[in-house]
Design a protein around this nucleic acid. Structure first.
Lengths: 200, 200
DNA sequence: GCCAGCCTAACTAACGTTCGTTAGTAGGAC
DNA sequence: GTCCTACTAACGAACGTTAGTTAGGCTGGC
């Protein structure tokens, strides 16, 4: 079937794009169809002209946001230069993709909490599989002795975890950095320092 | 009929203890008073004999779970021995408190996502402030040149992030460890290695 | 004149919560 | 021992509200 009409296309996407930050902020059950409709500027019933039900709308929002995020990271992984430069570019892109896109980060977080794990695994493999493999390859290349995949997993965990905790860190210690570029620099330096001194 | 006696003051606590894993699993809006009541074995209306409203019940569940978690970490921080042993004990306790108590980890995560940040900051300072200060002190003692608080923040972020991602890591790479004791060992070794070779 | 896309209106189900009531229990006064 | 009272914690029924969803009618560009 050929895709039909352009005008249909645009409202449909506008609905998903409008819904995404709402879902990110309040979660699936925390956002009503009426909330979304109001934000878009139409009535709730009209949403059903574009999506079969609330779940379909939710998945469309997820897909939209995650594909944007993946594109960002993939671009950075294509960077060329010295290994040092490539690693720094990758870490910054990852930090940027997490800290700079709170909607994506929160949706990911919520899916990790709420989602049916089997269904979500599929999404993760499809969407995050390739960037993860690229990261693993780069890290393995830089430190042939180490476990690139494991390091990548730690890296992702740390960045994501830090961005989640970021809002409350100042309350624990005002000196803690909330500047994400500092975070990126610290992590890149740390990784480089570790790799230049391979451990037994 | 001696069962009646036990119910007198314990029902209130039983309600909070039963509700906690439900809130952890499905979130505040995802759990109804009827769900909780059914899990406890009473009717929804009866819950109001013990808690003013749903929010009060939710806070009671939070307090119950978090206090348990803090006690665990605080105990480990009292450990004595060589600095090396104390650091390992601390890291394991932190990993254990996160990976071994998914209810606490998920509730924390949900509060970070959903909660009113001002209100939550208060809770964090009251509940997590002391263990965090102890961790900072230990890390500063072990590496006088470094920033103990920043390292503690990274450590907490990594552990929490890893435990959140743990269910889906195997889908990305089957070799990734989901064994939390391995995680604890890796982190402790990494920190020790870094501290024994102070960076410029 | 067609039809996609919006609308109003309505539906059922579920929500948190309140109400009046009831069974069981503990403690005095007689 | 037996009333009387006060209290607790459970209950079923119902409240008003909001949820997701559906049916059917209006409108404007093709």
């Amino acid at each position: 079937m050929s895709t039909v009409i352009a005008s249909d296309f645009s409202t449909r996407d506008r609905v998903a794009a409008t819904a995404a930050p709402l879902f990110a902020e309040r979660g699936f059950t925390g956002v009503s169809m009426r909330d979304i409709a109001e934000a878009v500027g139409i009535k709730a019933a009209s949403l059903y002209n574009h999506y079969a039900d609330k779940e379909a709308l939710y998945f469309a929002a997820l897909a939209l946001v995650f594909s944007r995020r993946v594109a960002l990271v993939e671009d950075a992984l294509k960077a060329t230069g010295t290994p040092r430069e490539r690693l720094k570019a990758m870490v910054s892109a990852l930090v940027q993709a997490t800290a700079g896109d709170p909607v994506a980060a929160r949706l990911l977080q919520r899916e990790l909490l709420d989602g049916d794990i089997k269904r979500f695994e599929r999404l993760v493999v499809d969407v995050f599989g390739r960037p993860f493999a690229h990261m693993t390859a780069l890290l393995t290349e830089l430190a042939p002795g180490g476990d690139g995949a494991q390091t990548a997993a730690y890296l992702i965990s740390l960045i994501h975890g830090y961005c989640v905790f970021a809002p409350i860190f100042p309350a624990l210690d005002p000196a803690l950095t909330t500047d994400t570029s500092v975070l990126a620099d610290n992590l890149a330096e740390e990784l480089l320092g570790r790799m230049e001194r391979p451990r037994p």
